[in-house]
Design a binder for these strands. Sequence first.
RNA 1: GGCUGGGUAGCUCAGCUGGUUAGAGCGCUGGUCUCAUAAGCCGGAGGUCGGGGGUUCGAGUCCCCCCCCCGCCA
Length: 649
Amino acid sequence: MKNYITTPIYYVNGEAHIGHAYTTFIADSLARYSRLQGNETYFLTGTDEHGQKIEEAAKKLEKPTQQFADEISATFRNLWDEFDISYDQFIRTTDESHKKGVQAAFSKMYENGDIYKDFYEGNYCVSCETFFPESQLMDGGCCPDCGRATTILKEESYFFRLSKYEKPLLEYYEAHPEFILPKSRRNEVISFVKGGLNDLSVTRTSFSWGVHLPESLNEPKHVMYVWLDALMNYVTALGYGSDEAKMDFWPANVQLVGKDILRFHAIYWPAFLMSLGLPLPKHIGAHGWWTRDGEKMSKSKGNVVDPREVAQHYGAENFRYFMMREVPFGQDGDFSQRALIDRMNSDLSNDLGNLLNRIIGMSEKYSDFVIDSVDVEKYHAKELNDAHTILDSLHTYFYELQLHRFLEELWKVFTIGNKAIEEHAPWVKIKEGRNDEALATVALVANLLAKASVMLHSIMPSTTAKIADALGFEITTESYNRLIINKGLLETFTIKKIPPLFPRVEEPLMQEAPKAMSEASVPKVEQAKMEDKKETTVSPDGLITIDQFFQSSIKIGTVLAAEEVPKSSKLLKLHIDLGEESPRQIIAGIREYYSAESLIGTQVCAVANLKPAKLMGMLSEGMLLAAKDSDGLSLIRPEKTRKSGSSVG
RNA sequence: GGCUGGGUAGCUCAGCUGGUUAGAGCGCUGGUCUCAUAAGCCGGAGGUCGGGGGUUCGAGUCCCCCCCCCGCCA
């Protein structure tokens, strides 16, 4: 059986973060699991390198665009190599074969009549590379996603007849309930498609850093829209439109994506495939995002989790185990050192590592390290049987991407081992001269550890290889078949005395993330958009341009009304005149420092183009500027009274 | 504003088509063994299952109303 697994290709507008690592870990685990079972497996990851943002980012650094893309792409590849990610191919959208494949796909869609030429006019956000309808724009025509100013753009564009695929897509979702995982996301996609699909503009003339149209069309001004270009990577990697060498891996079994890019993968991508006459992938799996200590991660807060740093302090595979075990697929997860340490100590040190140590100790004392499985079935048929029942049930969880359930169940095998030792107390048996029984219990546990290690291998490859080595075998498809499928036992072997694999962690090993900066009002629970292309590009030197600064509109406001928010000790509800038709409602977390009455009539500074947020169920349409230290909090105010709405800068 | 999903022990969550004393893991706590990484094993405390009303012999599980949270859309 052929099994093709993909991650998204990561956009090279910033370095890899925990979100990228998470997707890649899951995909790597799936790929390793598939290989262990003897499936012919192909695992693809890579980088997405085209688009206006990349072109501009390179220009700012005065680098050739290709060089810029090369550099960032390499950081991803290096990180995956450091984490021993078992990708079979690292594709780049700047690869010649990819470009050729995209052009071939474009030609085919064009010949099918699925692509036509027209004009596109609308409010365009350069940063998001997206047009927005008038109705969606924020005050002053700003982008609803990133808040930056948009420009009116009319450009000639080729369109993909997405509307044509509305019905076929809905029929496909209906007929394949497992196509979009988890199910909750499926509903969202379906309701979106039911709302009607517009044709999709798939070319741009406003920049040139992209795949050009097929020469036959003679359209040198046009380049492909980044999503058409990017999505096609999943088949161009297999040789679509060039040598077709590996196209027999298509359709993919699992395509992993972050929940923010699900729509592209669950709607556009299948529509493109339908147009090309290619089968659709079996599963699109959308995972959640990670927060840190309950808060959204952001560069400005300085609380971004660096996967490399965590790996250095806690071990790459421990970190990987934590991520896979902690969160149900599709849900958001929270990273904290506390949670990681608890997981490591409880699961890895206590349940697994200590169990291995126990039998090393006993075999040393009772049998000079020799472990023989001869009597295991005689004395421990029940334990063996219970363990096999669990092991047999695991496969389903992997298939459904429920890796946390997979691990949860797998861990019950260690409990069987720990209980068996307790119940049969080999040290008592030895004293009574019942050596066969004592040694059978030790051998039982050795076998349980061996079997569990095989199953855990895809999550913790090198750690389980060490366990297997101590137990005198290697984890391969052969041993998988022998120990798991055929329920066989280990040959007689001499166990290796190895130091504890998982020393307990008593104290946090990394410096804590800086506390969130004092922001008078901040939407606390708003989720981190980890994979979001819309994230601000920050130059490596940490400096921003004057233009970037002025993307925030800070204005002088006069407090017209203020009242305490019931059931909140921190929040005040303010009505502030920013020189607009009607006052803004701003919810600010300053009640501990300012009484409501004392604020009325005074002036404050407020960010006027902040995306509105809900706090305690109330809309907050801006944020007050304030500074905080250990003595308390101070609002930032104009030294002299200014007209409401005066801009600050 | 529209549409999903959800509100169950301190924390994270399981509880299918309604049926005996509401479960798990972690945490806390009492006991116990000694092979072991202050690990293991046994036991315990902790919940008016968001609020209110209704259907039923019987509701966490169905119906209605309300409150709150996440998400998608506008």
